[in-house]
């Protein structure tokens, strides 16, 4: 299956933002991150194009650590983010 993680990093939670458009893409990821504890890892599934360009950057600007961006090969990407302190 395409959804199988292609990485050894195990996320604590996952959010799918392929069903929304900017700026709700980032908002949905941000909300999911807020629900995690510091140090936990979120997996974000997003569409190619605008989300891939903007969402990782916005998450970085919020002070979180972007660990990996994986091309799922089906027009979607998986972004792994470590939540940092508020």
């Amino acid at each position: 299956m395409a959804t199988q993680p292609l990485t050894d990093i195990l996320p604590d939670a996952a959010v799918d933002i392929t069903d929304v458009v900017c700026p709700v893409t980032f908002v949905k990821a941000k909300v999911a991150l807020e629900e995690l504890d510091e140090g936990q890892i979120l997996s974000v599934r997003m569409n190619d194009g605008e989300p891939v360009q903007n969402v990782p950057r916005s998450i970085k600007e919020e002070g979180h650590q972007v660990l990996k961006l994986i091309d799922n090969g089906d027009g979607t990407y998986q972004l792994l983010v470590r939540k940092m302190g508020e």
Binding site: P23, V24, V27, K30, V31, E34
Partner: peptide, 24 residues
């Protein structure tokens, strides 16, 4: 209860703000 996609959209300009976020 988690926000629905519609709520995320309606309040997106708030939630994006560092001082607000989902908690605010």
């Amino acid at each position: 209860m988690p926000f629905t996609n519609d709520q995320l959209q309606r309040y997106s300009r708030h939630i994006i703000l560092q001082e607000v976020g989902a908690k605010g």
